[in-house]
Design a protein around this nucleic acid. Sequence first.
DNA 1: TATTGTTATACTCTATAACTATA
DNA 2: TATAGTTATAGAGTATAACAATA
Lengths: 167, 167
Amino acid sequence: MATRSSYEELARHLTAVAAVRRELARRMPPDCPPASAAVLMLLKLHGEVRASQLSELLAIDMSVTSRHVAHSAGRGWVERRPDPNDGRSRLLRLTEAGRAQLATLSAVHTETLQSYLHDWSDTEVAQLNTMLERLRRSFDVRPTADPPRTTPAREDSARSRPRRSAT
Amino acid sequence: MATRSSYEELARHLTAVAAVRRELARRMPPDCPPASAAVLMLLKLHGEVRASQLSELLAIDMSVTSRHVAHSAGRGWVERRPDPNDGRSRLLRLTEAGRAQLATLSAVHTETLQSYLHDWSDTEVAQLNTMLERLRRSFDVRPTADPPRTTPAREDSARSRPRRSAT
DNA sequence: TATTGTTATACTCTATAACTATA
DNA sequence: TATAGTTATAGAGTATAACAATA
């Protein structure tokens, strides 16, 4: 349990990370926006998955996932095939072209991060990775436990997490 | 100097952080989007600054900064006054209402992060803060050194960093 | 002529809602 | 009736370009 100011600081840093991401995005090929890159990276990591699973991995709504997948499929990076066990579902998987695209992305990422983090040791980068991985897992709790609301943030039932499959 | 796969992993984690940010954003008051929150946080941290300075602190283009500031000024959270030393410039500063809004944001951030990171120790949160702060500083080098391009990423002169003041 | 800040426009990303097709 | 995925629409965020005012 950390102090309040630690959380404030963390919130600020999380915002600043967005700038790092934008810088990385600027170096990417024009027809491969960061969202598509995320799709490819996750498919490489998890192999063949259903669209709904990918949506959960991305932590974005399925409608958005569908569009990103359509983009990648249109470029030939991802193959969609019907799920033999469920006619409504589609299985997604990287193609060879997708792997090639991923290799390009990897080169861009590595080159960019290497140039900016040239004075970081191997251990330090690994530590950051470990902590970010843990951060991701800490936020990966489902379903949303909708914590007690002590602030006047919002009473309306507006924004919520992206729709999940069966609650 | 870390391994290539460490950088690939880092790139993936940086993308995942965006999901954390979205979750944080969902809890914020409807009239205070994350971009405005960033403006307020930076003005609290740096005191009165010029619009161009704020733009650099946000690491976004001045045109975008101008709009975010206009939003906050419209809510009475930020005061814009002419710079006595330069008629083109404007000095920005938090109002009392801005500080109040910031207190609300702080409560939301703290509550949310506390609930998700309940099993993180004080030290661990501090470590993450330290590393993210260092990450930010590592990317804060100006002007952009446009590192050697070894990949076929893009030959056109398209996307670049947000325009900076005097190159 | 160059710089500060603003506005107009375009593009990306995300969420909600409506729809289809299967279960 | 409920679920998987698609598409249409709306809203937020950012970049480029054109502009006004000042240096």
